[in-house]
Structures are given as C-alpha cells and as structure tokens.
Simulated assay, not measured.
Amino acid sequence: MITPCKELSIREVPFDVSVSENASAFRATTVRVSKKKAYILAAIRALLARSGRDSFTPAQVVAEIKRRGTGYADATIRTMVTGHMCRNAPDNAGTTYDDLERINRGVYRLNRNGHADDRLQR
C-alpha cells in the first residue's frame, strides 16, 4: 500500500544541495538530474496513491507531470523513467539509479529494494 503524500509544486520539491562556485560540470549535471529525479519520484508517488496501484506507465507519469505544470519536456521525463531511474534499464542508458524497476514492457514500479535516493547502480 502506497502512503498518500502531499502534492508538491516544482518550487516545493525537497532539494537540499549546496554547490560551490567552483563546482565541476559533472557536479552541476548531477544536481540538475537529482532535482528532476526528486520531482519525478514525487509525481510517481502521488500517481500511485491516487490510483491505488503499484505500477505505472511512462505515459501516466508524463500526464501527471503535465498536470502539475512543469517545464520538463515529455521526452526528458520518459528518458528519466525508462532509462536513468530504472535499475534494470538497457546498457545504453549510461548512468542508472535503482529508484524504479521495469516489470513488463512499458510498465514500471517503485523498486522495493531500492531507496529512491541518489545512489548509483552502475
């Protein structure tokens, strides 16, 4: 059972990262990805709480994020869900995290063994 959570706007997403003026390009990229991840995870949790299900499709996530009114492109959201945030993404995904798990073609769920944080899987 997914616990309902407060729906957050893009400005309210919990995001605590300090970046010095001398931060490397890699660190700056990591910060941007982390903010996207936090927002996408909040949208997924709200979607699951509302639907009562434990799985979702990338299209549902895109619709939820559009409903919330962000500036993220649909392709960016889909890439994050199907590639970067998915622990069993194809090898061409580059850096992946263990937030989500693909359970069927086009169907995903929050990874029960992961911690939905910034830990790299590979």
Rank of each mutant, 00 (worst) to 15 (best):
E7A: 09
E7L: 03
E7H: 05
E7D: 12
E7M: 01
L8V: 08
S9K: 10
S9L: 08
I10Y: 15
R11A: 11
E12R: 02
P14F: 08
F15I: 02
F15T: 02
D16M: 01
V17Q: 10
V17D: 14
S18M: 06
V19Y: 06
S20C: 08
S20W: 00
S20N: 05
S20F: 01
S20T: 12
E21H: 01
N22E: 12
S24I: 04
S24E: 06
A25R: 08
A25K: 03
A25M: 07
F26P: 00
R27W: 01
R27A: 15
T29S: 14
T29L: 09
T29E: 14
T29G: 05
R32S: 15
S34F: 15
S34Y: 15
S34M: 13
K35Y: 14
K36H: 11
K36L: 15
K37G: 08
A38E: 14
A38S: 10
Y39H: 14
I40A: 07
I40Y: 12
L41F: 06
L41W: 08
A42C: 10
A42N: 15
A43V: 02
A43K: 05
A43N: 07
I44T: 08
I44M: 10
L47R: 10
A49N: 04
A49Q: 11
A49M: 09
S51L: 04
S51E: 05
S51T: 13
D54S: 09
S55G: 13
F56M: 10
T57N: 04
P58F: 13
P58Y: 14
A59R: 10
Q60F: 05
Q60A: 15
V61T: 01
V61G: 05
V61P: 02
V62G: 04
V62E: 05
V62Q: 08
A63L: 07
A63G: 03
E64Y: 12
E64W: 04
E64V: 10
K66S: 09
R68A: 11
T70R: 06
G71L: 11
G71P: 00
D74E: 15
A75R: 09
A75T: 14
A75L: 13
T76R: 05
T76A: 12
I77K: 03
I77Q: 07
I77M: 04
I77G: 03
R78M: 04
T79D: 12
T79V: 02
M80L: 07
V81K: 00
G83D: 13
H84D: 01
H84M: 13
H84E: 13
H84Q: 15
M85L: 15
R87F: 12
R87A: 15
N88Y: 11
N88F: 10
A89N: 07
A89F: 12
A89H: 05
P90M: 14
D91L: 11
D91S: 04
D91F: 08
N92F: 15
A93W: 12
G94E: 11
G94C: 09
G94Y: 14
T95G: 01
Y97E: 08
Y97I: 03
D99H: 04
D99E: 06
L100T: 02
L100R: 05
E101H: 04
E101R: 01
R102L: 08
R102D: 01
I103S: 04
I103M: 03
R105Y: 07
V107K: 12
V107D: 09
Y108T: 00
Y108W: 03
R109S: 05
R109N: 04
L110N: 03
R112C: 00
R112K: 14
H115R: 06
H115Q: 11
